Simulated assay, not measured.
Amino acid sequence: MGIYEVLVRDFPFLLKGLGVALILLAALLVIGFVLGLAMCLIQLYGPRTRLVQWPLIAYERVFRGIPIIIMLFIFYYGLAGLLDITSFAAAILALGFRSAAYQSQIFRSAFQSVPTGQMTAARAMGMSKTRAIRYILFPQAMRYAIGPWTNEFSSEIKETSLAYVIGVVELTRQAHYIISSTQGNVLIVFAVVALMYFIVNKSGNSLLYGLERKLAVPGFGKR
């Protein structure tokens, strides 16, 4: 059986692997969004004490400074002795916590792009700091964050492919299975996989760019 016949036969397995990669991507981005936003808000509007700020700075530097493969090994093999954790859960945590470190900086820049007078005006109107952040600063900051967030999306969809090193059966590992069954044909198989990643990346960025245009208001840059 030729390689093209094998690809047609095994393409559903590639789609299954892609589905696993997309679930992994969605989960890690949600974790990164929630933790990253919380870290950003604490850094900008929380207590300025070292006890609060220094752990957040240390978190960012650690998760941004360690290679993701090492982080995957730490979360999977390191936690295996403490917790009964699957490779998929370990990948979500490792990639999600790392994404949080990057997303916190995206949100921090976005909030700092909102004129400081906005908070002053909101407080002068009698709004609490929490309400001012929620109703005045947050909607504006999210518009600024969409552009940089597309880069995070592109980066993370590619990094989900590294989850195969701890046994997650995603798209890259499925490709390895096909290559093993065909005794080679590496170029063709990974060309198909590359095309699938490219389509997902392009589609996601197009949706985010569309959202950015839809939410555009006077005074905000247009892509």
Rank of each mutant, 00 (worst) to 15 (best):
S181F: 05
F73L: 15
Y77L: 11
L187W: 09
F13M: 14
Y45C: 03
Y76H: 12
G81H: 06
I69A: 14
S128L: 07
F107C: 05
V62W: 00
L28M: 15
I31H: 01
L83T: 10
A216M: 08
Q174W: 05
R61L: 13
L18K: 04
P47T: 07
F33M: 09
A191D: 02
V6Y: 01
R64F: 03
K129C: 01
V30T: 11
L211R: 08
I69T: 12
A124T: 14
A124L: 04
V168R: 09
L7F: 00
Q53E: 09
P47F: 06
Y164H: 09
Q53I: 05
A132M: 09
R223I: 11
P218K: 13
I92Q: 00
L72T: 12
A121F: 05
R64D: 02
A58Y: 03
G219T: 03
L41Q: 01
T130H: 06
K222Q: 15
G147H: 10
A101Y: 13
L51V: 14
A26F: 08
R61I: 09
A101T: 05
M71P: 01
Y209W: 10
N201Y: 04
R48A: 15
I69G: 02
A163V: 05
G81V: 07
S99F: 02
F153K: 04
F138W: 12
L72E: 09
I3G: 00
C40W: 02
E60C: 06
L83S: 01
S87W: 11
I69L: 15
V217M: 07
A21W: 01
A94P: 12
V186L: 03
M125G: 01
V200D: 07
R9M: 08
G204H: 11
T150M: 13
I136K: 03
V114N: 08
G36T: 06
V217Q: 08
L25I: 13
A80L: 14
L208G: 09
C40L: 07
I70N: 03
S161K: 04
G36N: 02
